[in-house]
Structures are given as C-alpha cells and as structure tokens.
Amino acid sequence: MYRSLFPRDIFAEMDRLQHDVQQAFDLSPTIRGFARNGFPALNVGSTPQALEIYAFAPGVDPASLEVNLERGLLTIAGERKSALPEAGGSKASVHINERFDGAFRRVMTLPDDADPEAVQAKLKDGLLHITVQRRASAQPRRIAIQ
C-alpha cells in the first residue's frame, strides 16, 4: 500500500502560513481600513445626525469594557478571558485556538463635528453600540429666503 511521506494537509498548512505572513506585512489601506485583524471588529457608519459605531465583542465581560472619549479620540478597551482549560492540573490539551483572548484596545479619531457631550454606549449580546451625536451647528438646515 502506498503511504505518503507528508501529512495529507501539508499544502493547506503552507497556504495558511503564507496567508498569515502576508497579512502580518500588509499595511496598505483597503476599503476595510488598516486594522483588519483588530479586536473587537468594528463597523462604523454615519448619518447627518450621528456617528454609529458597532464593536463586535462576544464573550467580553461588560465590567471589563471601557469606552473613553478625549480630545476627539474614541477608545474602546477591555479584556476577554480565555475559556480554555488551564495547563496546570488539567489533562486536557488544546490543538487549535483561533479565538482571541487577552487585553485589547481600539482607538479611532472622530470628526470635528462630533459632540463629546452626546455619546451613548450600549452592550447587548456581545455587540457594543456607540452613538456619537453631531453638533447642532453642523446639522444640515434649510435657510428661509426673505
């Protein structure tokens, strides 16, 4: 019977390794922005009245989350604990661990018309929704002609 000298998925492993190395050195901006591998993943959008920021942070304890706004910089920081067994007394071994755990920090610059006094943050089911209202002076308005 024919036996291969290589594991069956060696090419898949080499492809994964090449992809990881390429992402580590790829710093060019894309439509998704610079931090493609950042945690938590962000969706950012805007309306004429507000900026809407969604941070996907499943498994994060709400008590460990911090949202700060200072000098036009919005910071989302916190920590996600590992759900894996500890290596100390356990006989379990981990073969693949693709879930991020540990401390994280995401920082984004807000536009000049963002109102730092009108910010709301809500966490539900691992989705952090931050709404930053725009200043009333920056709102579009119709000017009456006299």
Rank of each mutant, 00 (worst) to 15 (best):
G45Q: 01
A57E: 06
E117G: 15
A103V: 06
G126H: 08
G88Q: 11
F100M: 14
E52C: 08
A24D: 14
Q146D: 15
A136E: 12
S4E: 11
P48S: 10
H129K: 04
A12T: 01
D112N: 09
Q18E: 13
V132Y: 00
S82N: 11
K122Q: 12
E86K: 05
N43R: 13
A87Q: 09
S137G: 12
L69K: 06
G102Q: 12
S137W: 01
P111I: 09
R36S: 07
S82G: 15
E52T: 10
A138W: 00
L42H: 11
D26W: 00
M108V: 15
A12V: 03
V132T: 04
A87H: 04
R141F: 11
M1L: 14
P40Y: 02
F25V: 08
R16D: 14
F100V: 11
L128T: 04
L128E: 02
R80T: 04
E79Q: 13
R80Q: 06
R71E: 10
G45T: 02
R71P: 01
D20M: 10
G38R: 12
I96D: 09
S90H: 07
R71Y: 04
P29Q: 03
A77I: 03
F104H: 03
A77Y: 00
R36K: 10
S137Y: 01
E52R: 07
G89V: 03
S93V: 09
Q139H: 10
Q18G: 07
V107M: 09
S90Y: 00
N97R: 11
R106T: 15
P58Y: 03
V44G: 02
I76N: 04
A12N: 08
P62I: 07
D15G: 07
L69S: 05
S28N: 09
R80N: 07
Q22W: 06
Y2H: 13
D20G: 03
T47D: 00
P140Q: 12
Y2M: 13
F104Y: 04
P58Q: 07
V94E: 04
A55H: 01
A92W: 00
A24E: 10
F56S: 09
D9V: 00
P29K: 05
S64F: 01
F25R: 11
L110P: 02
V60K: 05
H19P: 08
L127R: 14
S4N: 14
Q18P: 02
L5H: 06
V21T: 07
L69H: 08
L110C: 09
V94I: 13
F100R: 15
A144F: 04
V132L: 02
F104Q: 04
T131Y: 00
V132K: 04
A136R: 12
Q133S: 07
A41I: 08
Q49Y: 01
Q23N: 12
R80E: 08
D61S: 13
D15C: 04
P58G: 08
L51I: 03
R3K: 15
R36D: 10
Q146N: 15
R71G: 02
E52M: 08
